[in-house]
Write a protein that binds this DNA or RNA. Structure first.
Length: 327
DNA sequence: CACTTGACCTGTCCGC
DNA sequence: TGCGGACAGGTCAAGT
């Protein structure tokens, strides 16, 4: 019975963070520009709270100009002067399905195998979720919140837990919404230096290091996985008060955080063994993770046992033996 | 004012 | 088997 349970288990809490959203962005930017929206449907008000009249006026007939990313937020700019702002939160996903276009002749794959086979696929999945789940080939389903119809293709915004949202805003207003106004710098921007990082961290000198990393107004785009992984690399206990960290330790955290993010992007921004990126590659970041979801396993650095605890209200993975505590 | 905790959600897992 | 509670976490609001 236990075996059966284990086998059937799949995680839907893929938690798109900066590397995952970056991967989604790259895929959408390859597929969406110049496509024209012919229809939009949505069934969950909170997922897409815009007035239908605005949707009709500024979305229908508009063409996609570009797809970009800021922190964990996707921006789809339209040529109507409006942009779609999309936050996938934990379980949001964007599934792009081309219609009326039969599978390539060379392929004899079943429908459920379309996913993950790259540009030849007629169906490409972005974001969280399980590529082999019943979603495949059966969209829309009960998790579908919004469908953007491009005529020859549809973009499905699915979100099981309804935390994600999508908003249509005048492009010039986008930087002015609260979320963007308060957002900290992108950690991978060339202009973001170690000194900037240290200064910003020190503004929250009394808080636990992990809580500060997760604060999007300090640095944008870091979530639970990369917070745990970067703190492990820098050998900092997640609970450590920032004031008790030296500038040297913070500088190492800065470097390790960037390394972790870059490594994840390189491997398809995976947070889940089942994640599939735009090119159809399974993201493999979790195989590089040292502590995340490794509780009970030996620490790759010192051989101690990885422990799971709770810091800043979040499940937190660490090696108590080589991530020192400084209260 | 600075910082922490709870609410929003649904599906899954685990203990009783 | 079934039921209830814990858990998953990004962000904002409410509480300390």
């Amino acid at each position: 019975m236990c075996l059966l349970r284990q086998r059937r288990r799949w995680y839907n809490d893929d938690m798109p963070e900066l590397p995952e959203v970056e991967t989604v962005k790259r895929g959408l930017h390859r597929l969406l520009p110049r496509k024209q929206i012919v229809a939009v449907t949505f069934d969950w008000q909170k997922s897409f709270p815009n007035a239908p009249s605005d949707v009709k006026k500024f979305m229908i007939g508009a063409k996609v100009r570009s797809v970009t990313r800021r922190a964990k937020v996707l921006l789809i700019e339209l040529d109507s002067g409006y942009s779609l702002v999309i936050h996938l939160k934990m379980t949001g996903q964007l599934v792009y399905v081309e219609e009326g276009k039969k599978q390539k002749a060379k392929s004899s794959r079943s429908k459920s195998e379309y996913i993950g086979h790259g540009p030849d696929s007629s169906l490409v999945r972005f974001g969280a979720g399980h590529p082999n789940s019943s979603l495949v080939g059966k969209l829309p389903d009960r998790s579908t919140r919004v469908v953007i119809d491009f005529g020859s293709a549809k973009l499905f915004f699915n979100d099981q837990r309804k935390f994600g949202w999508m908003r249509l805003l005048p492009t010039v207003e986008v930087p002015n919404i609260n979320f963007f106004k308060k957002l900290g710098p992108e950690p991978l921007e060339a202009a973001f230096t170690a000194d900037d990082f240290i200064l910003r961290m020190r503004r929250r000198n009394k808080s636990a290091a992990k809580a500060v990393l997760l604060d999007q107004t300090v640095i944008a785009g870091v979530g639970n996985i990369y917070a745990d992984e970067s703190l492990f690399s820098a050998q900092i206990h997640p609970q450590t008060i920032v004031a008790n960290l030296t500038n040297g330790q913070l500088a190492k955290l800065y470097t390790d955080l960037k390394d972790v993010l870059l490594l994840s992007i390189k491997h398809g921004g995976s947070t889940d063994k089942n994640y599939v990126d735009a090119e159809g590659n399974k993201g493999s970041y979790l195989t590089f993770a040292n502590v995340f979801r490794k509780n009970g396993q030996p620490c790759p650095r010192c051989g101690g046992m990885i422990h799971k605890t709770r810091v800043a209200g979040r499940g937190t993975h660490l090696c108590p033996d080589c991530q020192t505590v400084e209260e």
